[in-house]
């Protein structure tokens, strides 16, 4: 191409479908726009940047069909990348694992971890409700022995759900409480033990060490990271540091890191769904559950298509 036609078509943002393929310069404006949109939808800056770079790397040099809009090509490439990232590479069927554990005569232990106030205890109660509906026998362990009212919060849920609670009050070592709770769940022939832990900042060394201690002592079957959809750029740091902490300890062939993510408060963010992407991109862990309200039935699965649509709309 060249000359007048080429510059005219360039202005329209169309590819000439020429010999050289797309250039970085040609796709740059579309990339800038998409990055901004991702950030408006609450994707962490770092993740939005990385995504756009990988889309660029894929597109540069590619030949588009004649007169296709460059912005459409960029958008499609990004859509494909988003879908790929959000679609779980490994999936965990909790009910199947619970049944397998039952056959072994061991309670299946799930630990809920995350920063302060994200919804660990509430969504733990929702999971209990879901398990009960699936005829699973549940026990809850009150291993947040720090925050005011944490034990009473679980007591209330347990009374409503008619589920046994293992608690030793406040200021006890949470790792030991969990340890005893596992024995209690075994004795009571419970299928599942749900372990609530205190919220903690990922930079808080002593508290992070204590959490690693709880996990290495008790070797739970599933470590669920609970994160809220409201969180901004901090999502990246939270997942990185919680994951790192668990990996540091990991020994043996199947190192225990974050097994899955429970994404909460999805009902509070309209189309700003970017935290889902930041969390999965950072950790590689699947979003196993989505909290979408404050009552027991408000727990769903991630709808990847809908999230991608919200991100690009």
């Amino acid at each position: 191409g060249g000359g007048l036609l080429s510059s005219f078509v360039g202005k329209l943002g169309m590819s000439m479908g020429g010999t050289a393929g797309l250039t970085r310069q040609e796709i740059q404006p579309a990339l800038v726009q998409l990055k901004r949109k991702l950030m408006e939808r609450n994707v962490a800056e770092e993740i939005a940047e990385k995504l756009c770079e990988s889309v660029a790397a894929n597109l540069v040099g590619q030949k588009l069909g004649s007169f296709r809009l460059i912005s459409t090509a960029v958008k499609e490439a990004l859509e494909a990348a988003l879908t790929r990232i959000l679609t779980p590479k490994r999936s965990i069927d909790v009910l199947r694992e619970v049944h397998a554990a039952r056959a072994r005569g061991k309670p299946y232990t799930m630990v809920f971890v995350g920063v302060n106030g994200v919804g660990k205890s509430t969504n733990l109660a929702k999971i209990a409700y879901w398990l009960l509906q699936n005829k699973v026998k549940v026990m809850i362990a009150a291993c947040d022995t720090f925050r005011a009212g944490a034990v009473e919060q679980l007591k209330t849920h347990c009374a409503r759900l008619n589920v046994p609670l293992y608690e030793r009050g406040y200021e006890k070592d949470p790792a030991k409480v969990a340890f005893e709770a596992i024995r209690a769940a075994e004795r009571a022939k419970c299928d599942v033990l749900l372990v609530d832990t205190a919220g903690r900042m990922q930079d808080n060394e002593p508290l992070m060490r204590a959490l690693s201690g709880l996990i290495s002592l008790n070797e739970p079957d599933l470590v669920l990271f609970v994160g809220e959809a409201l969180v901004g750029n901090d999502a990246v740091d939270q997942l990185t540091k919680f994951g790192q902490r668990l990996a540091d300890l990991a020994t043996g062939p199947n190192p225990h890191t974050i097994d899955g993510i429970l994404l909460t408060k999805f009902d509070t963010i309209d189309d700003k769904v970017g935290a889902a992407l930041s969390m999965v991109y950072t950790s590689g862990a699947p979003i196993m559950f989505v909290g979408c309200g404050q009552t027991y039935p408000d727990l769903t699965r991630l709808n990847v298509k809908a999230v991608v649509r919200s991100l690009l709309k």
Partner: peptide
Amino acid sequence: TFRAGAFDQLKQN
């Protein structure tokens, strides 16, 4: 009056 344990939390604080 909604959140489980809310009054206990406030009381303890």
